[in-house]
Structures are given as structure tokens and as C-alpha cells.
């Protein structure tokens, strides 16, 4: 379906559109490389921030909290996953972005981050948003560590921390599964990113602290406009096709890993 819709642009540009960096429908330029790079950058940074938090959530719930608090804390994390993304976007735009700009510029001692809405803002917001998804998978795995293995670990004189690390190693397939699922989420997230990424769809940037664009936010921001140009809509469908392929690939990898490496 997406391919049919995207066909006109492929016929015109070939796959070169994925290698061009300028998006300017008025000038018939439909490059999406800048968005591709933006998607990669934001999701990688987001995952790097989200994974430690997700593991922290799983460990806190399973190892530290008494059972009553466990339910409450777990509910809070689940609620974070249920929150509408547009609310994250709103908060990200008005609170998180300015805060990050302030913090980064203070730490760097100069105007490094020129706008509150940048690839970095999007990355941090994404990290917050995808943490519960990764945490859910890791929690599920963590709960599967058999009591016998736990006794073996403590029996050889492991401290709490050492036991935690050994257990995480035991359920490594779940940690990886959570990683991939969160990565998929981060790459596909649209509205919140569109609200805080800065919407710089015209030019390529690899500077995290500048305004940028991602594939999904390009689609969201440009679709309304696209009807007025012959090739803009096909180009956006081509971008969506790419996104869908990424999504399928990543999720398949995640499911495969979880099923294959079952402890």
C-alpha cells in the first residue's frame, strides 16, 4: 500500500531521495536523509538514556520495594506509558526544552544550545517516554529468574548488587528485547517529537543541540502541506514506508531474541 502510494517519487527520483538532504517541495526537492539521520540520532541518544532508567525501574521494583509499594510504583510506570504523547509534547515544549537549554548552556558556559527545541530535547523526551516499554519487558524477564538460580547466586556469597548483575545477565534476552522494543518506539514516535524537535526539515544537521527533524515528525509537519505538490505526498509515503520497514525489522528482531534466548 505504502509502496503504491510512494511509487511516483521512486519513479522520479529512484532511491536517491533517501540520500538527499534537502526538503523543499516548492523547489521540487524531496530529500529525506536529514530526517533519517535525525531519527537515528534521537533514538540512539534516547535509548542510551532510557535503558539505564528501565533497568533501574526493573531492579527497584523487583529487588528493593516491599510488595505493597511495588504495585504502586509499577502503576506509576505503566501510567507513564499510557499518557498521551501530545501531553509529553506540550510539557516538552514549554518546560523541558527551556530547562534543557538553560542547563546545557550553563554547563557549557556558552550558547551551545540555541533553541529550546532541538534534537537533544527530542531525545530526552523520547527517553522518558520509552523507558516504561523497555522496563515492562525487563521486569517480565526479571520475574522469571528461578528461585533455584537466585539461591545459587546468593549461595556463592554474592552481594545484592552482584546478584542483580548476575540476574540481569541471566535474562539478557529480555534486556535486549526491551532495548529493541524501546528503540522501535523511539523511532516511530511522532507527535511529541514533532512538537519539540524544532522542525528544521530543510537542512541536514548532526549537531544534537540544533533544531532538526525525524522521519515521523517530517510526515506530521509536512503532510498538510503535501497536497499542494505532486510529489510531496508520494515522498512522505516513501518515508513512511522506510519507517514501517524499520519498525518491522526491529520488532521482529526483538521477538526473535526473546523467544530464542529464553532462559
Amino acid at each position: 500500500m505504502f509502496f503504491i502510494k510512494a511509487y511516483p517519487i521512486f519513479a522520479r527520483e529512484g532511491f536517491a531521495m533517501f540520500l538527499q538532504t534537502e526538503w523543499d517541495p516548492g523547489a521540487q526537492k524531496y530529500g529525506v536523509l536529514q530526517a533519517l539521520v535525525g531519527t537515528m540520532l534521537t533514538s540512539v541518544v534516547a535509548i542510551a538514556l532510557a535503558m539505564p532508567m528501565a533497568i533501574g525501574v526493573a531492579v527497584t521494583i523487583n529487588e528493593v520495594l516491599p510488595s505493597r509499594l511495588r504495585t504502586i510504583f509499577g502503576s506509576l510506570v505503566d501510567l507513564t506509558a499510557t499518557m498521551p504523547t501530545v501531553l509529553f509534547g506540550l510539557w516538552g515544549f514549554y518546560v523541558l526544552g527551556p530547562f534543557l537549554q538553560n542547563a546545557v548552556n550553563t554547563l557549557a558556559g556558552g550558547a551551545v544550545m540555541t533553541s529550546p527545541s532541538t534534537l537533544f530535547t527530542a531525545s530526552v523526551l523520547l527517553a522518558i517516554m520509552v523507558t516504561p516499554y523497555a522496563a515492562a519487558v525487563i521486569r517480565e524477564g526479571y520475574a522469571l529468574v528461578p528461585k533455584a538460580v537466585e539461591e545459587a547466586i546468593y549461595g556463592v556469597g554474592a552481594t545484592r548488587l552482584e546478584a542483580v548483575l548476575l540476574k540481569l545477565r541471566y535474562v539478557i534476552s529480555y534486556v535486549l528485547g526491551g532495548f529493541f522494543l524501546a528503540l522501535g518506539r523511539a523511532m516511530g514516535e511522532t507527535v511529541a517529537v514533532a512538537m519539540v524537535v524544532g522542525g528544521n526539515y530543510a537542512h541536514l544537521t548532526t549537531n544534537l543541540f540544533q533544531s532538526g527533524i525525524t522521519i515521523s515528525s517530517l510526515i506530521a509537519l509536512q503532510f498538510g502541506n503535501a497536497r499542494f505538490y505532486t510529489y510531496a505526498e508520494p515522498a512522505l509515503f516513501a518515508a513512511a514506508l522506510l519507517l514501517a520497514i524499520f519498525g518491522i525489522a526491529i520488532n521482529t528482531a526483538a521477538i526473535y531474541l526473546i523467544q530464542k534466548w529464553q532462559p
Partner: peptide, 10 residues
């Protein structure tokens, strides 16, 4: 040592 042998399998 335990009833069910419990090496850490991985």
C-alpha cells in the same frame, strides 16, 4: 547443595 541441581545455566 540443593535438591534440584542449580548451576547458573548461562
Amino acid at each position: 547443595i540443593f535438591q534440584i541441581p542449580n548451576p547458573i545455566p548461562n
